Simulated scan of single mutants.
Amino acid sequence: MPFRIKIPRSTIERLPLYYRCLNLIEEHGIEEISSQVLGVRVGVDPSVIRKDLAWFGELGKRGVGYNVTYLKEAIARILGLDREWPFILVGAGKLGMALAEHNRKYGRHFHLVGVFDRDPAKIGLEVGGMQIRPMEDMPLLIKEKDVKIAMVAVPAEEAQKVAHELVKNGIKGILSYAPITLSVPPDVLVYNADYNLDLQRLAYYISNEGEQTWGE
């Protein structure tokens, strides 16, 4: 079995920041960028950027910097964004509807292929360009579309049950908006989008402003 380098999770989580910034820079016609300038734009120390990118080979030239288009495309390949990813949304409440509409307008690389809910009153309604479907339809669609990613926007008391159904049907990545920690097998990755936690972190930093400096 070939040896695989384990890339630090912190590095992977910074790559989308670089990718987003490079997209904006490219749109303004800028062809070359240094790690110093990129660092200012994304709020990351230039040495950290150079270390992050070094995991993936020689992506720039010493003393010159990085070609914006080349680096953007290289990061896209690393992130798997050189293909389109089908995903499903479970939960068609107000949050779910907002997420579906946002994806229809701004989604890139990720294509919503199904919206599911348990509420019979919502079945057949349209959201984000998709008709809401019953949960019973979910396994077949996951198989037909080879879906590996799911977004979960259901109440906390429903989230673990939904996660179990998703994992059972082959989902490997879950973006959860439910305010609980989901229990999933080791080979399934869960990211939690919890605005309450983020607001609490902001409150801490603001409350302690001036008392300490923040580390990375």
Rank of each mutant, 00 (worst) to 15 (best):
P2T: 09
P2S: 09
P2R: 08
F3D: 11
I5Y: 10
S10M: 11
E13M: 14
L15N: 01
L17F: 14
L22G: 00
L22I: 06
L22A: 03
I30F: 05
I33K: 00
S34G: 06
G39C: 05
R41D: 00
G43A: 04
P46Q: 05
V48F: 00
V48Q: 03
R50D: 14
G57V: 05
L59R: 03
G63L: 03
T69L: 08
Y70V: 04
K72C: 02
L79T: 05
W85K: 07
V90W: 06
A92S: 14
L95A: 11
L95H: 07
G96I: 05
R104S: 14
R104V: 13
K105P: 02
Y106L: 15
R108K: 15
F110N: 03
L112N: 10
V113S: 02
V113N: 02
G114S: 12
R118C: 09
R118G: 11
K122S: 09
V127A: 13
G128T: 04
Q131A: 07
I132V: 15
D137Q: 07
L140W: 04
I142H: 01
E144A: 09
V147W: 00
K148R: 13
M151V: 15
V154T: 13
A156P: 03
A156H: 08
K161F: 08
V167N: 08
K168Q: 11
K172G: 09
G173E: 12
I174C: 12
S176T: 15
P179Q: 10
D187L: 13
D187G: 13
V188P: 04
L189Y: 15
D194T: 10
D198I: 14
L199Q: 05
Y204I: 14
Y205C: 03
Y205R: 09
N208I: 03
E216D: 07
